[in-house]
């Protein structure tokens, strides 16, 4: 079964879809770059946004690649390659694949139990469960942004809007939630207030924050602005190394 799932024709189907999405990204990138130049944005700024995004994405992408490897054992390589290149995230795909496997009567998500019908059903459910973001974008992106834009012009009476602060606050809330969950995992992961849970995520986060502090110090105080593009990836890498050392 697994050799059927790894057959060239399935690679071809998945490859075509990925190539289409890559082409869409190129179109959006070129258009945005040209529009940026047309309204007089500094090309250096645009290029910095590009390089920083590429360096930022390399490490998480390797993590995603590991997800492909993790799923390839039961679903073959091409389908997880497509799912994780294009739309999904590993935690989502695994959860949905598991649920679909249960429904078609597989005892577990494994290559030995896989049947063509089970695979087709799992693949279908994976596609359906996460299509809403795209559907909502198709239907409402324009109207929603227009509505928000309308509010903005009403608010803008000389002062900077609350929008920026709201985004920063949203992010502070998001990061706090995750950091809180790591602390909670350590303190109560093995029973409330036992302090016997996993300490690694906290150490990794702390190391990574410390390295980030160094990066910010160097780029702001020592004027090494080019370092900014590597700050996130660099901090993450050192943080992840810490996980190996402890």
């Amino acid at each position: 079964m697994i050799s059927q799932l790894n057959s060239p024709s399935i690679y071809l189907i998945c490859g075509i879809i990925i190539a289409f999405v890559a082409a869409v990204c190129v179109v959006f990138m070129v258009r945005a770059y040209r529009a940026g130049i047309a309204i007089g944005m500094d090309p250096a700024k645009l290029k910095r946004a590009l390089t920083s995004s590429v360096t930022f994405s390399i490490l998480p992408s390797i993590g995603i690649l590991l997800g492909v490897i993790a799923l390839s054992g039961s679903l073959g390589t091409p389908w997880p390659w497509l799912r994780l290149s294009v739309i999904g995230a590993l935690h989502y795909e695994t959860q949905v694949a598991q649920a679909a496997a249960e429904q078609v009567g597989l005892s577990s998500l494994s290559a030995s139990a896989m049947t063509p019908r089970a695979f087709a059903t799992i693949a279908f459910l994976m596609s359906v469960c996460i299509m809403w973001g795209m559907i909502l974008s198709i239907l409402f992106n324009k109207a929603y942004l227009k509505k928000l834009g309308g509010q903005k012009t009403k608010e803008s009476s000389g002062k900077p809007g609350f929008g920026d602060s709201a985004m920063v606050a949203m992010f502070i809330g998001l990061v706090s939630t995750y950091i809180g969950s790591y602390i909670g995992g350590f303190v109560s992961g093995q029973g409330v207030l036992t302090f016997r849970g996993d300490l690694t995520p906290i150490i990794v986060a702390a190391v990574s924050a410390l390295v980030m502090a160094c990066f910010i110090y160097l780029s702001e105080k020592k004027h090494l602005v080019w370092l900014e593009s590597f700050s996130i990836a660099g901090s993450m890498l050192v943080g992840m190394l810490a996980a190996i050392l402890i």
Binding site: G63, P201, S208, A209, M240, A243
Partner: peptide
């Protein structure tokens, strides 16, 4: 290392 890619991300962003 790969199991901790998310904590590494949020640590850096926390700062």
């Amino acid at each position: 290392a790969f199991a901790n890619v998310v904590p590494a991300l949020f640590g850096a962003m926390a700062y």
